[in-house]
Design a protein around this nucleic acid. Structure first.
Lengths: 340, 340
DNA sequence: TAACTGGAGTGCAACGTTAAACTGAGTCGC
DNA sequence: GCGACTCAGTTTAACGTTGCACTCCAGTTA
């Protein structure tokens, strides 16, 4: 199967060269613009190119120049709007640099994440943008592979890896602070996750705790609910549990917009009003929150900046693999809508 | 820049061969399993492989075997949940076949769509899954490139191109029929688009028309609104226009869930209740509709089937480029929730 | 005139892999 | 005892590009 001989006889640079009566090198130069080629020759080459419908073979080029023109974006799930929107920006920014984006979906499988850390298929991608989920800190340090890698959304200081993220502690504190400001006194948090290596969730819990403390409110661990993922369903389940338990919060800080939308759904099912009975705030600012009922108050990370900065870091590292790792903090803002 | 010599000296199959004291071909055979290799040799090779941390170079392999192990999925926008969810399924199904998925975002730019039709970068992908937006029928026929291509969501019969789609006419008729059944008499449609080459939107309009006719209701063109895209915003704008105009429909068939959610948002803004004042139905069954307020009644295309079938068609065509094009219709079902 | 300079182009080798053809040694059948 | 076959491996020649070192010619310059 897949016998090369069954394929159409690909037209290559040498066919073009033959037709244009020049050497393959000249054709290559015309295409790449690497060296000067006389106008007359250039024209003949171009003519031959579209006579034959020639299109350069990327595999061959990549093999030769050791660059793939391809970067991988590895995220837990593309179906999650935050990632989908982020990837959209990445694809767009990458195109401006003549890079194509390849998608890897880890689904939080450890084995898939390890594969990503190991550089995926060498020679296939020039770099990786990685939004990890389950992998723990030591794994980054033991990385044998040298494929340039930039972490998204994780804050693993001193890990020797580039990363781009918002200040999760501050973001969570801002969100919680806003809930307090508008009258919340019994504020729940949904989305906590225990991770040995640190990670987004514990940082958000920390910000939540700090904001309560700053306002002189008690920190009640029973109001902090963990979820395994950040789907709508997780938010709904956690909210339902909270209500079943009779915990009766007057506001909820959700660790993602999706969780927040799930929580709102659960509240509605119980006949509770948002924000009158319970105020809800999320993080991510996905488009959905602008049209939901009620519209969603949220912490808005600058997704375009995340996309662009992470690519910049990545290309930087591709150019110079040994430069010091950088950790970039991207700004976030509070966007007030109706849910809180 | 990007001088190959500055790169780390990649360990290749010949380094492994040298260390294991066999020929490169043997190493290749161990890896591919193409030919029998004695257990002892195989073991030595494996030992050498992880001594050196060898990882095969895909560019080289692809150049040699003329397969990239890569397929492209070209959609207008990844940020649109329907596409994001669909791509998620595609990525998963592709992995089972050892294929990686690369994303192209056309944003409906004609030039980007033409690039897709032209096979993108030859040698880079083995096939393309394409969800077109603006491109017209003749363009398919004049396709010079032979990269296997499967159309998603379009119904262009006789175009000589493989495609996978739901029966859009029937789906629209089902949706409209359901609205009529539950009492709708003045039913609007949002999402029409004029396309010379046919396409999804006109088919849905046709289904809508047929359902009205079947129920003996008049077809009123002023209740059919066109939108340029299928975003929430487009739905909201169209709905607002309808209300401003005093058209007062009692039900609306939206050509996508996103449009439906936008319409619901607009209705709420005007203080109208869904479904009491206006019933809303969409198409797509995105996860969002299960948690929205109210939850969304919709036509559910079997997305997993679309992903799997289209990949099957694609791999089929990769294996045999000259087989007759096939058009596969994927089932859809009506999922009733709260909005209608 | 010989020695340089620069522009335009050519030829060769190599990137890392694998298919195909080949080598030898052992086994089998008749 | 000899051809035919199998097994486990090797050697060779690509796949389509491109960087490098080279050539060739015309125009300067000393």
């Amino acid at each position: 199967m897949l016998d090369p001989s069954t394929q159409r006889p690909a037209v290559g640079i040498r066919d073009v060269a033959a037709l244009a009566r020049v050497s393959p090198t000249t054709v290559s130069n015309v295409l790449s613009g690497n060296r000067r080629v006389s106008a007359a020759t250039r024209e003949r080459v171009h003519w031959a190119i579209d006579q034959l419908g020639y299109r350069p073979n990327l595999s061959a080029r990549n093999l030769r120049v050791r660059r793939a023109g391809l970067i991988a974006v590895a995220v837990p799930e593309i179906g999650v709007p935050y990632f989908a929107e982020l990837i959209g920006h990445v694809v767009q920014a990458a195109r401006e640099r003549d890079y194509t984006v390849l998608i890897d979906q880890t689904e939080g499988r450890l084995e898939a994440e390890q594969f990503v850390l190991s550089g995926m298929n060498p020679g296939m991608v020039d770099g990786i943008l990685f939004s990890p989920l389950g992998i723990e800190r030591p794994e980054y340090e033991n990385r044998r592979d040298t494929t340039p890698l930039v972490l998204l959304g994780e804050r693993i200081s001193g890990s020797g890896v580039d990363h781009v993220a918002i200040d999760n502690v501050a973001a969570a504190a801002d969100a919680t602070g806003y809930l307090i400001e508008r009258g919340g006194r019994r504020i729940a948090a949904i989305g906590h996750q225990e991770r040995r290596g640190g990670g987004t969730a514990p940082q958000r819990t920390e910000g939540y705790r700090q904001a309560l403390e700053a306002a002189g409110l008690p920190y009640d661990p029973s109001l902090v609910l963990a979820t395994s993922k950040y789907h709508r369903r997780d938010g709904a389940l956690a909210m339902t549990e909270l209500l079943d338990r009779g915990a009766q919060p007057d506001a909820v800080f959700c660790y993602s917009d999706l969780v927040a939308l799930g929580a709102i759904h659960a509240l509605r099912e119980r006949g509770l009003r948002v924000p009158e009975d319970v105020a809800i705030i999320g993080i991510d600012d996905i488009d959905e929150g602008r049209y939901s009922t009620p519209t969603l108050t949220t912490i808005e990370p600058d997704k375009v900046a995340i996309a662009r900065t992470s690519l910049e870091l990545l290309f930087d590292r591709i150019a110079d693999g040994s430069r010091e790792p950088r950790q970039v903090v991207v700004p976030h803002t509070l966007t007030v809508r109706r849910s809180a």
